[in-house]
Design a protein around this nucleic acid. Structure first.
Length: 261
DNA sequence: ATGGCATGACAATCATGA
C-alpha cells in the first residue's frame, strides 16, 4: 500500500474543523501536517479526530501559530520520538512538531512569516530557518527517510509567484529567504512538487482580498521536501485547490504526496 | 497612498497574517 502525506495550513483549526473532517473522510490521507491551529492543547479537537480515525500529537498556543501531526494507517507508538519545537532554539512560538511515523521521520513546520524585509520579524524568520537547518542536518543523519512538510512562507522560484516582478524583494520572495530555502535543499532534500509535471500557475496560498483565488493570484509557499531516499519512492505530488473553493475557506490549500512502499 | 479579508482577544479596535 502506498503511503500518503499531506500538509495544510488551516488558519484556525477551530473554524476549519468541519472542512478538515470532510477532507479527511474523502481523501483518507495517512499522515497530515497542520499549521496555524491557533488552539491551546487543552482545546485540541482530539476526540473528533479520533472518531474520524486519526490519532494526533500537537503543540499549540493561544491565538497564533500551533502545529499538529495526524496519523491514520500508522499508529504513533510511545517511542515515536516526538519533538516539539526546535531543540537549542529557545522560542515560545509553537512552530514545529516531529515524529517517526512508520518508515518516515515527519517534520511539520510553520515557518515565520517575516512581515517585512528588514524588520525584527524578518530577522527572526532567518534565524529560525538557520536553526531548523542545523537541527535537520542531525535528523537526516539519524533518519534517512525524512519529510519536511509545512508552510514555509517562502516561494522558491519565479514560477511559484503569480507576478514575480511585483513580488521581487518582498517578504516571502526575497533573496535571503530563497537562499535559505536552497540551503535546506542542500541538506539533501528534494522539492517533491517539482518531481512531476504540474499545471501552470500552481499555488498553495491566495490572499482573501481582491478575489485573488478566482484571479489565480497566488503563491506556492507550502511544500513537502523529501530526503533523497524517500524521493526515489515518491510517485505523485499535487495541490488540492477544492477546499479553497468552499465557503469560509482557509487561505491555504493542502499539498499531498504519495510514497510507494 | 491606502486598504482590501480573515481570525482571535476583547469588548472598539488592534495585532497578525502573507
Amino acid at each position: 500500500m502506498p503511503l500518503t502525506l499531506a500538509t495544510w495550513n488551516v488558519n484556525s483549526l477551530k473554524v476549519r474543523l468541519p472542512h478538515l473532517l470532510d477532507w479527511l473522510a474523502t481523501h483518507r490521507v495517512d499522515i497530515v501536517c497542520l499549521q496555524e491551529t491557533k488552539l491551546v492543547d487543552e482545546q485540541f479537537p482530539a476526540a473528533a479526530l479520533a472518531d474520524a480515525g486519526y490519532s494526533a500529537v500537537y503543540a499549540g498556543q493561544k491565538t497564533y501559530n500551533g502545529v499538529a501531526l495526524l496519523t491514520r494507517a500508522v499508529t504513533l507508538p510511545p517511542g515515536a520520538d516526538v519533538v516539539r519545537g526546535l531543540p537549542a532554539f529557545e522560542d515560545p512560538q509553537k512552530r514545529l512538531i516531529a515524529a517517526t511515523v512508520g518508515p518516515v521521520r515527519v517534520v511539520c513546520a510553520y515557518f515565520p512569516n517575516g512581515q517585512a524585509v528588514g524588520s525584527e520579524k524578518y530577522d527572526y524568520k532567518l534565524r529560525w530557518i538557520a536553526a531548523l537547518n542545523a537541527w535537520l542536518r542531525d535528523e537526516l543523519a539519524r533518519h534517512p527517510g525524512l519529510a519536511l512538510a509545512g508552510d514555509f512562507n517562502i516561494a522558491p522560484e519565479d514560477r511559484d509567484v503569480h507576478d514575480p516582478k511585483v513580488w521581487a524583494g518582498q517578504v516571502l520572495f526575497s533573496e535571503p529567504e530563497k537562499q535559505a530555502f536552497r540551503e535546506l535543499i542542500g541538506l539533501g532534500l528534494v522539492d517533491s512538487f517539482r518531481l512531476f509535471d504540474q499545471p501552470d500557475r500552481s499555488y498553495t496560498w491566495w490572499d482573501y482580498r481582491m478575489q485573488a483565488f478566482r484571479r489565480k493570484m497566488g503563491l506556492r509557499i507550502d511544500h513537502v521536501l523529501l530526503s533523497t531516499s524517500l524521493a526515489r519512492n515518491c510517485t505523485a505530488c499535487s495541490i488540492d485547490v477544492e477546499p479553497r473553493r468552499r465557503e469560509q475557506p482557509s487561505d491555504h490549500a493542502p499539498v499531498i504526496v504519495t510514497l510507494a512502499p
